[in-house]
Amino acid sequence: MDTSKPAIFVNGALLPMHVRKRVRTVIQVVGADRGAVVGKSPDDLQLVVKGSPPSAPLTNFVEVIGIADSEKSIQAEIWTNFGDAFDTYNYNQLCQLANGEYQHLFL
């Protein structure tokens, strides 16, 4: 794991707290809009992910790491296909743990 550039786990609701910071989340791809990917956050909010997706087709779920450039969008640097089945409930819980009482345990 790359610890030199930590990225905060976020869901849609936590993203506004980290604007201009490096974040990571998993979206469920919904579609594309003017060169950006539109997806659903683990807590069912709509997010826009900008940047250049990998050449391989995106799977249903994609992890993105990048800079939160607004309260509802991320400028992604790293895209990772997470496959077509993913437990968003667990991921959402993880995001809350990473921003709550156990924040100190996360990078």
Partner: peptide, 12 residues
């Protein structure tokens, strides 16, 4: 892994 994660989240 999914249900095991849920189990551990519940423990936490």
């Amino acid at each position: 892994y999914s249900s095991e994660s849920r189990y551990m989240l519940d423990l936490i």
